[in-house]
Structures are given as structure tokens and as C-alpha cells.
Design a protein around this nucleic acid. Structure first.
Lengths: 192, 192
DNA sequence: AATTATACTGTATATTTATACAGTAGTCAA
DNA sequence: TTGACTACTGTATAAATATACAGTATAATT
């Protein structure tokens, strides 16, 4: 990822938060007004730079068609450390985020039933976050279809046979066809 | 929430997936072309209905300024049951979703350190999803600032004193001032 | 039976919006 | 010291876009 100038960071931050606050993107004019530019071309050039560096994309001629490709400001901010007292504010550029657009591409959720994975800290009622079309290695946790139900198990391939292995030792491994695997489990979410 | 007609559901579904796929909203013309309407007014009327029923909002005169207020199609789809074999498709209207816009309002994440909540299945390295400005009751899990660090504990109020109680019995309850509470923990996420 | 809402066609138009082109001035690396 | 990149001003304009107004026909509600 190419480095941004401080001005470009400001522009990207504005666009990201504008979308977060309004649900749709800013027009060139919106950006111009915010920064006090006297020419719309100032905005156009900045957007072009951000596109060239891979942070944005845009459909030529279409209004408010900026799409965020990568932004350190989108997603749920992860507030690692907090200074004593309130309020908590997102700090700056390098801040990490959860559920960024990128991360959530080709992703769906499944509700977990049963206790076959509780040794892996996946419990009944949890949601597993599954990504499609991604490489799977031995030891990965996968979601797969067995019969009519979707289940979550460890993946293990021995020679040309594929097995699903529960974390709970009271259940037995199952052999399955590889094309019944829905995807790789990339996360677990539990509502409280 | 007012009921939608089947046509309105189709329109809402199109708008929602358009935003998901493109990162920005459709223009009236985009919707018109997709449905094959011969007049843009057909779209305008449908959008007006969806606004009146509380599913959308829009800035008058602004291009692509549709904002989704409530949509059963946004967020990460939860695929509960799966028919035998692939592929898995999101079914229909009543489908549930995770991380909808609504749900993620005023939300941030904190990385969990230590084992003080492992009895509540919150482990070292997990992310707690915290909502600000929401009512907190006894027994809720909250995120709070103690000294220079953020922690996650059970909330308990006895008379006019507020305590934070760890799930792990080897740690002791702490009394704190209520304004050091950052918010209510509404979920736990673990990357795998 | 009357009223309201749905679901459009058809036309017209104001304005929002993006973008091109021509410059200026400063910085920064080769 | 030349070229590339940044960071803008200033002007002009084609095109994208939303929306208003006038209708028609059907279904649902009261």
C-alpha cells in the first residue's frame, strides 16, 4: 500500500467519515466546501491521487460514486489503550479496525448448534463468520454441509481423503466430499 | 415497522444489494433500467413509499443520496439452514443479519487482555464489541476504565455504589465511579 | 360505494455534479 | 536542474440526476 501525504490522509478521513455518517458518499462540492477550496479541481486531483494509490475507486462521470477500497477509518474502530478518564476517541491513522470492507468480502454467518466445538471455545448459539472461496489447510476450522445440516469442524486431509474432526472428543470424525465444504471459519461472534 | 408490498421488497432488495456490491447507491436511472420501467417517476414513487414506511431516507435533490434506515438485506447474512449440497443462497425477506447498520451505531471494539472473564467465555485476545450511551442493568457486562487500562467486567449496583465484578473468582470486585464506564458489551468477537 | 394506496406511463426541466483544460507555486528525489 | 509529484486557483461545460406535474388503471380498505 502506497504511502499517503498528510493532506491525502485528511481527504480520505473526511470521505470515510462522511460515508459513515450519511450512508452515501460526498460530492466533489461537499469536499470542496469542507476544506474551503476555491476550485472543484483541487478535490478532483486529490481523489485521483487516492485512486492511483489504491485507496479509492470511482465510476467516471457518476455522481457520488466513490467507493472505498482501503481505509484505516472504516469498520469498527479498535480502541486498544485508553487514557485515564473519558471520552474515548479514535486516535489516528494507524488505528486498527474490525470488520473492514475488505475483511468482510464473501462472508456469511452460521448459527452454531450443539457442543461439538466447545473445546475450541465455540458454543451453542454462537455465530461463526465464514469466508467462501479461500484456501483451506489442515487444522483450519471449516463450515460444511453434512446431510441437511451445516456444521463446524476442524479440517484434516489425509492423502486424498477429507475428514471433519470435532474438537469435542465425545464425537467422532466424519469423512466428507470436499465440495460440501462451505468455507473457512475466520471468526466467532457471540451476542450478549 | 410498516409492512411492505412485494414490489417494494424487490426495490429495497435491489437498493441494498446495489450498495453492498458497488459501495455507493443507485441513481433513479439505475433502478429504472433494472426493473425496465419506462418512466423515472415509477422509481421516485417507490422510493417515496419506502421513505414513508421508514426503510429509507434521502436528501432532496442530491444524487445517489439514498440512506438505508432499515433493511433485512444489509449486514452479514445469517444462513441458518442449508439445503443439501451447494450453493448456499440467502433465502428471503425475513432472513436475519449480523452487524446491521442499526445494530452497529455508536459501537467500538476493545481487545481483551487477561483471563478475568474467561468463565463468561471471554478470552485473552478476543474483541469485545461495546455500545456507548445505552442503559446498563445489574448483571450486564460492561467495559470500563480503571486507572490507565480498559477492562471488561460484570456490572453491579448496590444502593449508590457501583462495582465491577470479574467472572473469574480468583479476582476481586472493584468499586468505581459510574462515569468511568465506557459502555455495554453487546458482543464478543474472536478472529481465527 | 367512495376513498386511499399501489404501480406505473410520459414529458419536461432545473440543478447537481463531475470533469476537462489552462495555469501557478512549492517540494522532493535523481 | 530537470522532471515528477503535490497542492492548489479559475473557468467552462457536458452530462448525470432528481423531481415536478399530469395522467391511467387496478387493488385494497373503510
Amino acid at each position: 500500500m502506497k504511502k499517503l501525504t498528510s493532506r491525502q490522509i485528511e481527504i480520505l478521513r473526511f470521505i470515510t467519515t462522511f460515508i459513515k455518517n450519511n450512508g452515501y458518499g460526498p460530492s466533489v462540492e461537499d469536499v470542496r466546501l469542507f476544506f474551503g477550496f476555491k476550485s472543484p479541481n483541487a478535490v478532483t486531483c486529490h481523489i485521483r491521487s487516492l485512486i492511483n494509490k489504491g485507496y479509492l475507486s470511482k465510476e467516471l462521470g457518476k455522481a457520488r460514486s466513490i467507493k472505498i477500497k482501503f481505509s484505516p477509518f472504516s469498520g469498527i474502530p479498535i480502541l486498544g489503550k485508553v487514557a485515564a478518564g473519558k471520552p474515548v476517541v479514535v486516535e489516528d491513522f494507524s488505528e486498527d479496525v474490525l470488520f473492514s470492507k475488505d475483511e468482510m468480502e464473501n462472508v456469511f454467518a452460521l448459527r452454531v448448534k450443539g457442543d461439538s466445538m466447545q473445546q475450541a471455545h465455540i458454543y451453542d448459539g454462537d455465530y461463526v463468520i465464514v469466508r467462501r472461496n479461500v484456501g483451506i489447510n489442515n487444522g483450519d476450522i471449516v463450515a460444511a454441509v453434512i446431510g441437511e445440516e451445516a456444521t463446524v469442524k476442524y479440517f484434516k486431509k489425509i492423502k486424498d481423503k477429507t475428514f471433519l474432526i470435532p474438537a469435542n472428543p465425545s464425537y467422532k470424525p466424519v469423512e466428507i466430499k470436499e465440495n460440501f465444504i462451505l468455507g473457512k471459519v475466520i471468526g466467532v461472534y457471540r451476542k450478549i
